[in-house]
Design a protein around this nucleic acid. Structure first.
Lengths: 257, 257
DNA sequence: GCCCCGTGAACTGTTGACACTTCTGCCACG
DNA sequence: CGTGGCAGAAGTGTCAACAGTTCACGGGGC
């Protein structure tokens, strides 16, 4: 029996249009794993937890379904969608090609203030202050960095990229192995910030693509080592060109990582 | 005063879960321009038109909003979102890089049956049978061709590509200038089919990218000639490489278009 | 012992009604 | 003549209740 998850959510205060709050709360619980894949969630129970009627909950469910976080068959309880290597690969492939493009057009437009912010965040990512290492906090900063990277790519692209990044978070958390240390590649962020400052759009985009695909390949190897990531490799080729991501390339070394 | 569009939609038969039907009907009306940009649509009126209560309509509205087809401020009537060159450029940029990738991985996987279908559709696109030329019918086939091209790229990618293609349809119709003739580039489809048959993934992807970006540039030039499509050009560069789309490239000629 | 069907609980989809907000048009007032 | 504000209409967000569906469970028949 799938755990028909229960537990009281804080009631929605008193505001009008409660759907966004419900949606975001559930979304967060799914992304962080509080609501595990396969768990069944009923409109009635969620409504009760929020102290609200089923109307707004139904609307929130529709949004979560359109985002791909839950499956909702007619006349059945909704279920938190499961994880799969295929989806993980798709998500990262989308991120690789789209974020590379978004970064390419953003680089010439960064303000001095934004560049300084990137530098600062990158430094924090490399040398997190607190001991012991707090993965939650680090990942928060990490998401902020990647989000700022795409600042000037337009609202539509930004929204999509945010969604994809959020969804990959699900996999990162599920397979973080207890989050016991700095993820490999954490140091690359300072190189990226540097390339942005140098207005090297091509170099920055390439480094981002390698950065993302390394994360993806690491995860895939952990989850299902036999899986052959055809789509992801094609995505990498599209961004980096046919030569492939074999050795550290020119712009990477130049950035002095 | 914005036209608070009215008019009776056929009542939803008697099925359970009416939301999808309502959503699709409204979506189609927006995409084809029956519901013009800026038009205001009220839950109450739509509900009456469908012979249904406001509940399902609200859910449909939420989906349409998440898709970006309507704007829905709290306590206000929803409005059909307007058109803009920026969005058009974004849509086509997304299509260029994502469909190119999707096609790249699809090419090795086409069955003989699918290849034959592509050939056939491409031929119809080049020499449409009926006189006078029926744009609606032609565009139907056109969408079918592009959809089949991505058949093997996985459900998530397919869904996204379909959505983007559908949205560009809005612009194509709005600026079709009466749809009085075969769009330029219509002949390229047979070359694409040919490249698929030859299992030339790279060539097919490049041709698709050029095909899409030409359509985009034509539309942009019609709508707002002063607009400089920075994002789109970056997208083209990402797929074709730095040399740019200057001359007809090797694989294009080899396909003997 | 095994299978089938009826029954009731748990849910979902839908509806009509209620409270509150926004906007329009009009009137009194300056 | 211009302006401020005040009712009423129109619309939205929400809720509680109704009807139909799915599923688990147990009793009866074989």
């Amino acid at each position: 029996m799938a755990t028909t998850t229960s537990g009281s959510r804080g009631g929605v205060p008193r505001g009008r249009d409660n759907t966004p709050a419900i949606r975001e709360q559930l979304r967060a619980e799914i992304l962080t794993g509080t609501l595990v894949p396969g768990a069944e969630i009923s409109q009635a129970r969620i409504a009760a937890d929020f102290g609200v009627s089923r109307g707004p909950v139904r609307e929130a469910f529709r949004l979560l379904e359109s985002e791909g976080l839950i499956d909702a068959r007619v006349n059945h309880r909704a279920r938190v969608r499961g994880l799969s290597v295929h989806e993980l690969e798709h998500l990262y492939s989308l991120r690789v090609i789209n974020e590379s493009l978004a970064l390419t057009v953003s680089v010439p437009l960064f303000s001095e203030h934004e560049l300084a912010e990137l530098d600062e965040l990158a430094e924090v990512l490399r040398h997190p202050g607190d001991e012991p290492f707090d993965f939650e906090e680090w990942d928060q900063v990490h998401q902020g960095f990647h989000e700022r990277l795409l600042a000037h790519s337009g609202p539509r692209m930004l929204e999509l990229a945010d969604e994809w990044a959020a969804h990959t978070q699900r996999y990162r958390r599920a397979y973080a192995e207890g989050g016991r240390g700095l993820p490999p590649g954490a140091a690359e962020h300072v190189a990226m910030a540097r390339l942005c400052r140098d207005r090297d759009a091509r170099g920055a985009a390439h480094l981002l693509a390698r950065h993302l695909s390394r994360a993806a390949l690491t995860l895939i190897a952990q989850i299902e080592p036999t899986h052959e990531p055809v789509l992801l490799r094609a995505a990498i080729r599209q961004v980096l060109g046919p030569e492939g991501p074999s050795r550290p390339s020119e712009e990477h070394r130049r950035a002095g990582a």
